Amino acid sequence: MSEVSSVSADLFLLDSLHDFQEHSLKLIEQSRRTIAILSHDLDVLLYGAPEFVQAISNFVRSSRHAQVQILVKNTKPLAETGHDLAKLHQRLSSKILLRKLTVEPQNTEMGFMLCDTSALLYKNDDNNYKGFANFNAAVEVTRLRETFDYVWQYGEPEPELQTLHI
């Protein structure tokens, strides 16, 4: 179960899949404009959960300005297994952008979700459910957004995840 940090009432220490699922939904619900996700393989238990995919769908449909950017290091499992978030990307490709990571950030182990300019879900190691959610982390989000934007510019669309519009 997540625990509130003694540092801030907006900071929650997470140590289970359930914690990450719960806080990711809360972060999406409070988002208004942008969500950015950096992940090694877009963990299907977290980012492919039906509740998460539905929350993202609701988010991008909530405003014409709402947009999701997803950077994934290993896109092969997405194409092979039919990840629900990747399928949503195919249906809403102008609102949900997905690219393959081609340039590594300095911290190659981390994974995160940035929501607007101040909320953050962070996994210390993208393969483990240890990290934190911070609902008031403007400084950290700004720093991570710079990292995300840098690697995003070198990211490439994954041809196997693109849909042909005729």
Rank of each mutant, 00 (worst) to 15 (best):
D126E: 04
T81R: 06
D149P: 00
N107C: 01
N58M: 12
K26D: 08
L38H: 07
P50E: 10
Q153Y: 09
S63C: 07
P50W: 06
F135N: 05
H23K: 07
S118F: 09
N74Q: 11
G48K: 03
V151D: 04
A137D: 07
Q54W: 12
A36V: 03
A133K: 02
L27K: 08
E80C: 00
G111F: 02
F52D: 00
N136I: 01
Q90S: 13
A66L: 08
L144R: 04
R143Q: 12
S57L: 10
T102N: 10
I56N: 01
M110A: 09
N58I: 09
A49I: 00
T142K: 14
N136C: 12
L42G: 03
G82Q: 05
A86V: 05
I96C: 07
V72S: 05
Y47N: 05
L98R: 00
S62F: 09
L114N: 02
M110R: 07
N58A: 13
S57H: 15
Q153D: 12
L78W: 01
K130S: 11
Q106E: 13
N58Q: 14
A133P: 00
C115Q: 03
L101K: 04
L46M: 07
H83D: 01
T34F: 14
Y154Q: 13
L27S: 10
N134T: 06
S93C: 11
S63L: 07
R91P: 02
T102W: 03
R32G: 09
L46W: 06
H83Q: 01
I96K: 06
R99P: 01
E22G: 04
E109M: 13
C115P: 01
Q90E: 10
V151K: 04
L97V: 07
N124L: 13
K87C: 06
T142L: 11
D43V: 05
L88F: 11
S24T: 15
P50A: 10
E109L: 15
K73C: 08
A55K: 09
T142D: 14
S31D: 05
A138M: 12
N128Q: 14
P77W: 04
T81S: 07
R143W: 06
K87W: 06
Y154A: 15
S63Y: 11
A49C: 10
Y150T: 11
R64C: 08
D43G: 06
A79F: 01
Y47V: 00
A137Y: 08
K123T: 02
N128I: 09
R61S: 15
L45S: 15
I28M: 13
